[in-house]
Design a protein around this nucleic acid. Structure first.
Length: 477
RNA sequence: GUCCCGUUGGUCUAGUGGUUAGGACUCAGGAUUUUCAUUCCUGCAUCAGGGGUUCAACUCCCCUACGGGAUGCCA
């Protein structure tokens, strides 16, 4: 067996990529990069009842959007395929048979209804709800009878009934479980598909996975998995269980309390770089104070040893702040490209690239998510609307004098340039005696629709002569 | 209920057997800006509680509390 480091991201295609899964994928990816190992994508689609059309493609596309490339898996192939578990059922059945033959597993003919009833009874007695072992010791004849009847059955793992198991987790260190708490896990369902536990162990071994890096919700399944490795006589991989991502109320991050799908975040205009950076710091941190990382920097800095033990709240406020930073500090061109789809969606036609970028530049300093970009572009693309309060400002004598003055001067000038603007600004003060509070706010209101906003010359430049004259005309009485 | 895991400001975190416990978000105040935003500065606020061990514990050990996860023919 080789000493190569091989890690895997093994999502089940339930329709979208969860941000928690994104972090799991990232850590796997980073560890592989860090140590020069291989990163594998494996699709855990063994639950036919949860099949979602297009989910796998969505998953792959999202990983691509996040630039987390994998060395083996769907689309790219590899020596250890197929990488879809639904295409590997024969393999699992073969290994399940081996377990059966060696006495590590048994057929269970209990129906789901039987199990429900059993659980109710055990609960009523204050016991745990593990399987009661009804089919654990069926005789050969009993089994043959059931099979002859074509009774449905599942294959269960025959876990030890006493003692305890201790193992080492990279993050948790020493962990111990008593065997009498471990259930006789179902390995093969009655539809012939394996459960996670069997498929996972078999595939991790066959694909020569060296480190299992996954969420903490799997920690209590480790005893079953290790027992399987032992039953097969295989060397188990190193275990590494990541702390959970949490809702603000500290429960496991869930859809109920906001967005959890990476594509939702992407659609709202969070940049892939932000998401990766943000999520990387939830449960891992370098010794330094650095908090902005490119993917390449993360690849260098990452270490399994520095993963935290406790769960972390997914704080949207901080995500927003970080996205704002990325929006402002990335190259304007790139942000402009990202922003295009929002303009398209708002039906704002981009006629002038230079003005478009200036517009994006105005917006990026005032927003946290790119989907807010059109809010700041709106005054340039549609008619202005004024509140009663606005109208009062627009209709004061001073404002009206000001607007007329500007309207006439612009009409009479051949060119509308910066020079003219600054000249008019000066003359508004010197000739009309209008300055400060009576000058800028009304002008900005008349042209941009709000007394707060971008610098006047910028507004004027983007708007252009036509629209400016129109807007003045509309409010001059 | 049972088992497992966890606990540094509201949140993400750094940190050491002896520190004024550091950074970031948020919040408050201020400066810059014609305004808004940006940016900058300042401030608020933390080692869950109780026992040990030790000259000394936020740091090591135990207990308690609290939080979370698991307890499916889901993953």
């Amino acid at each position: 067996m080789s000493n190569e480091i091989r890690v895997r991201f093994a999502p089940s295609p339930t329709g979208y990529l969860h941000v928690g899964s994104l972090r799991t994928a990232l850590y796997n990816y980073l560890y592989a990069k860090k140590v020069g190992g291989k990163f594998i994508l494996r699709i855990e689609d063994t639950d036919q009842t949860r099949y979602v059309d297009g989910a796998v493609q969505n998953l792959i596309d999202t990983l691509k959007a996040m630039k987390l490339g994998y060395d083996e898996g769907p689309e790219v192939g590899g020596e250890y395929g197929p990488y879809y578990q639904s295409e590997r059922t024969e393999i699992y059945n073969k290994y399940a048979q081996e377990l059966l033959d060696n006495g590590y597993a048994y057929r269970c003919f209990c129906t789901p209804e039987d199990l429900d009833k059993m659980r109710e009874e055990r609960k009523a007695k204050g016991l745990d709800t593990r399987y009661n072992g009804h089919c654990r010791n069926l005789t050969e004849t009993e089994i043959k009878e059931h099979l002859a009847n074509s009774d449905n059955f599942v294959i269960r793992l025959k876990v030890p009934q006493e003692g305890e198991i201790t193992f080492y987790d990279v993050v948790r260190e020493k962990v111990t479980f008593p065997w009498d708490m471990v259930d006789d896990q179902i390995l093969i369902k009655s539809d012939g598909y394996p459960t996670y536990h069997l498929a996972n162990v078999v595939d991790d071994h066959l694909m020569q996975i060296s480190h299992v890096i996954r969420g903490e919700e799997w920690l209590s399944s480790v005893p079953k998995h290790l027992f399987l490795y032992e039953a097969f006589g295989w060397k188990p991989p190193k275990m590494c269980h990541l702390p959970l991502l949490l809702n603000p109320d500290k429960s496991k991050l869930s859809k109920r309390q906001g967005d959890v799908a990476v594509e939702d975040f992407l659609n709202k205009g969070y940049l892939p770089e932000t998401l990766l950076n943000f999520v990387s710091l939830l449960g891992w941190h370098a010794p330094s104070d650095q908090e902005f990382y490119t993917l390449a920097e993360l690849e260098k800095a990452f270490s399994l040893k520095r993963i935290n033990k406790s769960g972390s709240v997914f704080d949207i406020e901080k995500l927003n702040w970080m996205n704002g930073q990325y929006l402002r500090n990335s190259e304007l061109q790139i942000i402009g490209e990202h922003a295009r789809k929002y303009f398209k969606k708002a039906d704002y036609h981009i006629a002038n690239d230079k003005h478009y970028l200036e517009l994006v530049d105005i917006a990026r300093n005032r927003i946290h998510k790119l989907d807010e970009v059109t809010e700041f572009a709106k005054p340039f693309f549609s008619e202005l609307t004024f509140t009663e309060e606005d109208k009062e400002v627009l209709e004061t004598e001073s404002s009206q004098t000001l607007f007329k003055f500007w309207y006439e001067n612009i009409t009479n000038s051949a060119k509308l340039n910066e020079e003219l603007i600054s000249d008019l600004l000066k003359r508004s003060a010197s000739e009309l005696g209008i300055k400060g509070k009576n000058l800028y706010p009304p002008l900005r209101l008349a042209l941009y629709g709000s007394m707060h906003g971008p610098e006047l010359p910028t507004i004027i430049e983007i708007l252009g002569r036509e629209k400016i004259l129109n807007r003045f005309k509309n409010i001059i009485r």
